[in-house]
Nucleic acid binder design. Structure first.
Lengths: 165, 165
DNA sequence: AATGTGAAGTTATAATATAACAAATTAATT
DNA sequence: AATTAATTTGTTATATTATAACTTCACATT
C-alpha cells in the first residue's frame, strides 16, 4: 500500500491524506524558519496550523475565534502579524480575489504560485507550472516589462464538483 | 504623420494619445450598452470617464470627490453601483490585488484580461494573450478543472520605469 | 395621468486591514 | 545573574473597502 504525500496526491483526489499535509507543512515550516534565522513562535505556529485545517482559503477573521480559544489575544493585529510573517517566509499565500489565505504547498522552493480555486467546494490547488510562468514571462518581456510578482487566481469548478461521484 | 490609436499605441509608449483612448472608450461604451439593451446613464458615463482619466487603476473612493463636484450623490453605493454595472457590461475591470478599477482596453470582444501593473508609475496594461490563456487552460484541464474566470495580475516594472529616458 | 420598473439617494453598517504605542518576552552582552 | 537591546505580543483606535436596506426619483409604457 503506497504512502500518500502532498506531492503525489493533491487536495481533491479521493485518497488524499490531509493529516500528512498538516504534519509535513508544520515540519517544513520549522525548517524554513530555522533556515531563515526566524522564530516560529506559538502564535505563528498556531495560525499556520489553522490555515492548514483544509485546502480551502480562510479569511483572517475566520481564524480569530480559534486564536482566542487557544488563549491568545485575538484582536486583528495578532492574526495579521502572524499571516504577514508566514507570507514573508513563503509558508502562506494570500489570495487577493478572495481576501483569504492558504498554506503554501511547496515552501522552500523558489516559485510562483498559481491557484485553481473551486467556486463550489472552495478547495484550492496551487500549481507551479513552468508553462504558465514562461508564457507570462514572454508576454511581459515583449512589452519591456520586468515581472516581480505574479498573481494568478483561476476561479472555476474542480474535478469533483464538475462531475460528482 | 500616422494617427495614434489604442490598438497600436499602448499606454506607456511616448506618442500615446490619451484623448483618443478616452473618446473611443466612451463611444464603445455607448455602443456596448445599446447592444445589451442597457442604459449608460449620466452617473455611469461619468464614472467611466473618471476611470479613463489615466491608465492607472483607481480606487472606488478616489472617484467620489469628482462625483460630488459633478453634483451627484457621492455616497459609496453610488460609485459601487456604477462600477458594478460597468463591470457587468465588460467596460471596466477590477484588479483584486489593488482593490482598484481600470477601463477595459478591448470591450465587446469576448476575452480574458491579463494585467501588467507597474509598481513605480502605476500604469497598467491589459493583454489578451492567447498564449497565456492556453497555458492556463492546459494546466487546468490536466487537473480536471473547468475554468470560469481568470485573474492574472502581474506586478513589476514597466519599460519606462526600468530604463527611464 | 396611472402604473410599473429600474436607477439614484440616503443612512447605516459590514468586512478587511493597519497605525501607534505599551507591555512582555527573548536574545545578546556585560 | 543583571543589563541592555531587539523582537514579539497586547491593546486601543481607526482606516479602508464594500454592501444592506429602504426611500425617493425618473422615465417608459400603458
Amino acid at each position: 500500500m503506497p504512502q500518500n504525500n502532498a506531492a503525489n496526491n493533491i487536495a481533491y483526489q479521493s485518497g488524499h491524506d490531509h493529516n500528512h499535509c498538516i504534519s509535513s507543512a508544520m515540519l517544513e515550516a520549522q525548517s524554513v524558519c530555522k533556515g531563515n534565522g526566524q522564530r516560529l513562535t506559538k502564535i505563528r505556529e498556531l495560525v499556520l496550523q489553522l490555515i492548514w485545517q483544509s485546502h480551502k482559503p480562510l479569511g483572517a477573521y475566520d481564524l480569530l475565534p480559534a486564536i482566542a480559544e487557544a488563549g491568545f489575544n485575538s484582536a486583528p493585529p495578532t492574526v495579521y502579524r502572524a499571516l504577514d510573517f508566514l507570507q514573508e517566509q513563503g509558508l502562506v499565500h494570500r489570495l487577493a480575489s478572495l481576501n483569504a489565505f492558504i498554506g503554501c504547498s511547496h515552501p522552500g522552493e523558489h516559485h510562483n504560485g498559481y491557484f485553481l480555486i473551486c467556486k463550489d467546494c472552495g478547495i484550492t490547488v496551487e500549481l507551479a507550472s513552468e508553462e504558465i510562468q514562461q508564457s507570462i514571462s514572454r508576454c511581459a518581456t515583449r512589452q519591456g516589462f520586468a515581472v516581480e510578482q505574479e498573481n494568478v487566481e483561476i476561479l472555476g469548478c474542480c474535478t469533483n464538483c464538475v462531475a460528482p461521484a
